[in-house]
C-alpha cells in the first residue's frame, strides 16, 4: 500500500456568496474514500462557514452547514480554525457549531474536531502537509 499522505483543504470563502465552500466540502467527502490523512483549515472569511444557526430556507439555498458535523463519520477529525480570523470578524468559538467525532480507539468517546490555532500555528499546519488544496 502506498504511503498515507497529508491533505489539507484550505477554506477562505464565506459559505453562500460563491460555490467554493460547498464544492470544497463535496470534494472532501469524495476524497475521504481514499484513506489519506485529511485536515481542513478555516481562515479569513472561511470561518463564517462554521457558524451555527444558519437558516437558508427563505434564501432558497441548500444549508450545507450540518454536513460539517458528519465529517467525523468520514474520519475527517481535524478542523483547524484560525484565531485571528475569528477575532477580526468579532467571532468566538461559541459562535461556531459544536463539531465532534467519535474516537473508535477510545471507546467511541466524543471529542471536539475544531482546533483553534494562531496565524503562525496555521502557517505551521500548512507547511506540514504533502498536498494543500485551496478553495
Amino acid at each position: 500500500m502506498s504511503k498515507v499522505k497529508k491533505f489539507l483543504y484550505v477554506n477562505r470563502k464565506a459559505p453562500y456568496g460563491t460555490i467554493y465552500a460547498q464544492e470544497a466540502l463535496e470534494v472532501v467527502l469524495i476524497g475521504a474514500a481514499f484513506d489519506q490523512d485529511v485536515s481542513l483549515a478555516f481562515l479569513d472569511d472561511g470561518v463564517f462557514q462554521l457558524t451555527k444557526g444558519q437558516d437558508t430556507k427563505e434564501a432558497g439555498l441548500k444549508n450545507f452547514s450540518p454536513t460539517f458535523r458528519a465529517l467525523g463519520d468520514y474520519e475527517v477529525t481535524k478542523l483547524y480554525v484560525e484565531q485571528e480570523s475569528l477575532d477580526e470578524r468579532g467571532l468566538t468559538l461559541d459562535d461556531l457549531q459544536d463539531i465532534q467525532y467519535e474516537d473508535e480507539d477510545d471507546d467511541y468517546a466524543e471529542k471536539p474536531s475544531i482546533i483553534v490555532v494562531s496565524r503562525a500555528g496555521m502557517a505551521d499546519v500548512m507547511a506540514d502537509q504533502d498536498v494543500v488544496l485551496s478553495f
Binding site: 479569513d44 496555521m122 502557517a123 505551521d124 500548512m126
Partner: peptide, 12 residues
C-alpha cells in the same frame, strides 16, 4: 481582495 496579504501572513 485580501488574498495576497493572507498568503504573506501564512508563509514560512
Amino acid at each position: 481582495n485580501q488574498t495576497l496579504i493572507s498568503c504573506l501572513g501564512h508563509t514560512k
